[in-house]
Design a protein around this nucleic acid. Structure first.
Lengths: 252, 252
DNA sequence: CGGACGTTTCGGTCGACGCCGAAACGTAGT
DNA sequence: ACTACGTTTCGGCGTCGACCGAAACGTCCG
């Protein structure tokens, strides 16, 4: 067994991918994409495994640098370590979603509905609301897709006018805007530092609030007004049960 | 065993990550990042496994949609299926490279040198040359990093003047420009459709040519002139043995 | 036709790993 | 101090999958 060039051999990549290659750990990561900290027990219940099993998995994920932990009393809270990891997980899931793979079990389509409306994706908005925001900002000329995704000058002014502060000097060169494929809408929504700032602002201004302990969020009445007037989102999109798929196929 | 919500469970993600979670398959993917088609035997030798083993791995990767195959006579050529897959692999490797993980074996540092100078990364340029091009295009105002990575109007004009045709309507919304972390330089170079067009043009114009059957490329004399005059790359960067790290820490 | 060569299939082996329950450990609250 | 509860450690079990060599299969070429 002659040792191989570590650069060409996929040692590190295989080790990292191996952390995501287990159904239970993958479920953990998906759950943690809501950006909040979960306890070991919560994760165990989410994935349907024993607490002892969950503990071992969490230890692995923390050891691999994917999760950061914070111990408080008898609780052990874990969350996604940093935006890079969130991006990694998003990339893998969206790649997985677009690939054939065995079969889609089609079950549980009911519970799905709650999540398709509006939810958080790590630290930004996703679901029909997230996609609608992306569309609306495009229509108003606040973001441009022409040469890669970018915030326009108008967009920067508009954010400043709303007093949305974008974290401009984060660690590790996080992009201001990123396109993030939405796995329910099958269309892109906005990620990156700007989208995170918008999401944070939406929570702070009580435009949206969490429902239950999942990723799902609801839009408040004031939020409804704000999204329609300031963002230019079509009102019917915000009907929590509307089947109108908004004005799709615009940037097809 | 009650079945779980397929949206929340990491079924698909675990399956996809599992394809990359094996050292041998990961090595295949890394090798295939040069963008060309390899035969099963070549991959087997690259990873140091038997041909039969390699065949089975290739079948898995093709079945998972990561690789596309093309059979010619008694040969079976495989290549990365599409730019999305290349992006996936790049994301995982760069995430793996920035993570602690066990230990870096530090061996094979010699062979590394050949690759640090200039190489291809799927369909664009990487290595010191790739990073230098990214820096130069930034300095000349052809790309902007302010609000996400974007090609400026000057950049578009400049490309047109050089007769570099960018594939503008590809499948699956490929971004025009992407930042791609370089694992030898530890700094970003340019990926995406624009960078692919530049790379293709560089080959067509004989600015660069492949050396051996690896990812490494050399810069020709005409290429040297072109990179210095048209791109504004500092000449010393193109010295194949120069230790000058260019004018680093510019966009730090 | 017959050999050379790239590829694939098939058994079979072996190690790695996910899972559990039971018991131990720590913290928090009564 | 005693109880409750979240977490962790430890054996042990079962499975999955990576690997190889040998043999079969195709294609190309002399």
């Amino acid at each position: 067994m002659h040792d191989r060039d570590p650069l060409r051999s996929g040692e590190a990549m295989a080790a990292l991918a191996g952390l995501l290659a287990d159904q239970t750990r993958a479920t953990f990561c998906l759950a943690l994409l809501d950006g909040r900290a979960w306890t070991v027990n919560e994760l165990a219940r989410q994935a349907g495994v024993a607490a002892s099993t969950a503990s071992e998995h969490v230890t692995q994920l923390v050891g691999g640098g994917l999760l950061a932990e914070e111990r408080q009393g008898r609780h052990r809270y874990v969350r996604i370590a940093d935006p890079d990891v969130a991006h990694l997980i998003e990339t893998v899931t969206s790649a997985a979603g677009r690939r054939p793979m065995t079969v889609s079990s089609l079950g549980g389509a009911n519970r799905r509905r709650a999540l398709t409306y509006a939810r958080t994706c790590y630290d930004h908005l996703a679901g029909r609301l997230g996609v609608a925001i992306a569309d609306a900002m495009t229509d108003r000329g606040f973001v441009s897709w022409d040469h890669g995704l970018a915030l326009t000058d108008d967009g920067a002014d508009w954010l400043a006018a709303m007093d949305v502060r974008v974290d401009d000097r984060p660690a590790s060169r996080r992009p201001a805007l990123r396109s993030c494929l939405d796995w329910t809408e099958r269309r892109p929504h906005l990620g990156g530092a700007v989208a995170a700032a918008v999401c944070r602002h939406a929570f702070d201004a009580h435009w949206i609030s969490r429902v239950g302990n999942a990723r799902a969020v609801t839009v408040t009445d004031t939020g409804r007004q704000a999204f329609v007037s300031a963002f230019g989102v079509a009102p019917e999109v915000l009907d929590s049960d509307g089947l109108a798929t908004s004005g799709a196929v615009r940037r097809a």
